[in-house]
Design a protein around this nucleic acid. Structure first.
Lengths: 206, 206
DNA sequence: AACCCAAACAGAATTCAGATCAGGAGAGAC
DNA sequence: GTCTCTCCTGATCTGAATTCTGTTTGGGTT
């Protein structure tokens, strides 16, 4: 299944620029507060030109969310595959979760702030398709973490508790950071990473 | 400082009805998806009559959030004051967090889904005032949990870790539930409560 | 009873951001 | 050259939120 984001883009396409500008605006000012037209201004095109690339403002948002979910999932799978012991895999997964660029911080914030958007169906067809895609990726990410927890329980490294609940708690702990973290704020990503890493190990421990 | 919500309401005021209707709609369908006019319909008044009670749709949302924050804070303070040992206080606080009516579930969902609204200032004066109030309550709730963690560390019941980070993690674990929990869904509030209760104790433990 | 006044309310009109329409410009293919 | 596809624009539309301009309602006053 080849998706739009992966097909080769025309060289003069401004799709990437629009996405970057949208991430900045949505992340800094919030989705509702940013005027769709202001994104066009940032890129240097007319407002209606946006509709050449995205069906709607929400469609752009959903695309950003899917992109970020795809990145998270693939990075998880990559770093986890490099470790053998579940406990090392868990450490690597948490570490990777905070190994992000400032742009990715914004994308995570956008993603977490609009998760509820994935709950209700969309009217338009393309939006609904993108929503389904994002939901599928959420499921995949959750499955990734649940699988990791399961392996840890089977190997005896983690305590024997409901893997579903456990992974939900772990994931909640990991992603909750993006609700308050600000680049250049008082708390660095490194100390956050170390704290969450420890906390997660305590969560799965005895 | 006497606030609007606490002043005595005129007997024929529909403020309470509007808030209830809004909580239902915002909670079930989402804030963005519910038409402000449909809330008026639910109450049985014209759309413009809403503006007699709230300055805007967002002002109503902020009011709901403040109300829920006030409830959470006071309930926390009440149940914690009944216990002596920090570990019992923590257990009681978590237990109380899930001792909620279906309406309060919706309010928590609304609150958690729109926390980011509190980050950016509002244009209108009344909205901004309500936002500041909600922010203050958030601070208070966080302070409540941080204080509890600090007492636990001092008494030696909890491990000696950064109280700020620890309480943030605890709070994240407790409130993350409202993102996925649905009344009548597959997971009951009781098992969630028990799981989170244990998880939180592991978080603050050695 | 008649009156007063503030709270409560509604219909028409306005606003404004998101979205549509109907086409135009430009670059590469042939 | 002209065909065609991508990319783009100005004018226009749409629909939900909000404002304007009053009107109704009902308890308290005289």
């Amino acid at each position: 299944m080849v998706r739009q984001a992966t097909v080769t883009e025309s060289p003069r396409s401004k799709r990437g620029l629009i996405l970057s500008a949208a991430v900045e605006s949505f992340g800094d000012d919030g989705f509702e507060l940013t005027k769709w037209a202001s994104v066009a201004d940032k890129v240097g095109i007319g407002q209606t030109a946006l509709y050449h690339y995205f069906e709607s403002k929400v469609h752009c948002l959903l695309t950003i969310m899917s992109t970020e979910l795809e990145r998270s999932a693939s990075r998880f799978e990559r770093v986890v595959s490099l470790e053998d012991a579940p406990i090392d895999q868990l450490r690597a997964a948490v570490r990777a979760a905070y190994d992000v660029t400032p742009q990715e911080v914004l994308q995570m914030r956008i993603l977490q702030s609009h998760m509820d958007l994935l709950a209700t169906p969309r009217q338009s067809e393309r939006e609904e398709a993108e929503r389904q895609h994002a939901r599928e990726l959420v499921r995949k990410v959750e499955e990734n973490w649940t699988g990791l927890v399961k392996r840890g329980i089977e190997s005896g490294d983690f305590a024997d508790r409901d893997p579903q609940q456990t992974s939900r708690a772990v994931l909640a702990l990991v992603v909750s950071v993006w609700r308050w973290y600000r680049t250049g704020g008082p708390t660095t990503l490194e100390e956050t990473r170390d704290f969450v890493s420890d906390a997660v190990l305590r969560l799965v421990g005895p």
